[in-house]
């Protein structure tokens, strides 16, 4: 139970960090005159679908701790796929659309700054989760499994806030 409590509390605290960043993003956007809308629906939707699938497989792993391995592996694959696709999207934005941390073609430097900070921090969380699940593949207690599940569902949950806040409100018309 101790590990589970520790992760619950960590997640609660981390939720405040993300909430602060998201509210800060909303605050800055409200103060900006214009905001670029460069995204298309499909890539973001694909990322969301991958994470939702991983949520499902992780939940399955906890439901059947004795046969957890294939489900964990599926979660791991989804996590890695998310990281790879997301990185490709970053590369596209940086290389082809000239979006940087403090510069972009639309003259709204905060667009890149907020995008990379929010999604970057989230990606770091996904990467940490992938590492943890990789460790669990080598054998795990039920407690560790439940703790990892809690963390993973939280990270996916954060994405469900990031996706609308960052992508859906900046779609090409």
């Amino acid at each position: 139970m101790t590990t589970l409590w520790a992760v619950r509390l960590f997640v609660a605290s981390d939720a405040f960090t993300f909430a602060a960043l998201l509210l800060g993003y909303a605050y800055l956007r409200a103060h900006s005159g214009s905001w670029p809308a460069p995204f298309t629906l499909l890539p973001g939707l694909l990322l969301t679908a991958i994470l939702l699938a991983s949520s499902f497989s992780m939940a399955k792993a906890v439901r059947s701790p004795k046969a957890a391995k294939p489900w964990l592996l599926a979660t791991l694959v989804c996590g890695v796929a998310f990281l790879v696709l997301h990185s490709l999207e970053w590369r596209h934005l940086i290389a082809e659309r000239q979006v940087g941390l403090h510069d972009n073609p639309w003259g709204v430097p905060l667009f890149g700054a907020t995008f990379f900070t929010l999604t970057g921090l989230h990606m770091a969380h996904v990467a940490a989760g992938v590492a943890v699940i990789g460790g669990l593949l080598r054998g795990s207690s039920l407690q560790a499994l439940r703790a990892a599940n809690l963390y993973w569902q939280f990270v996916d949950g954060v994405w469900l806030f990031l996706f609308p806040a960052v992508y859906l409100t900046a779609l090409q018309s």
Partner: peptide
């Protein structure tokens, strides 16, 4: 402190980016 320092952490990340990465938060 579980919740308060979490928000200071967020602010700290942004300030560090402003100083070191040239952002304008």
């Amino acid at each position: 402190s579980l919740f308060a320092f979490a928000v200071l952490m967020a602010a700290g990340i942004l300030l560090l980016l402003d100083r070191e990465a040239g952002t304008s938060f």
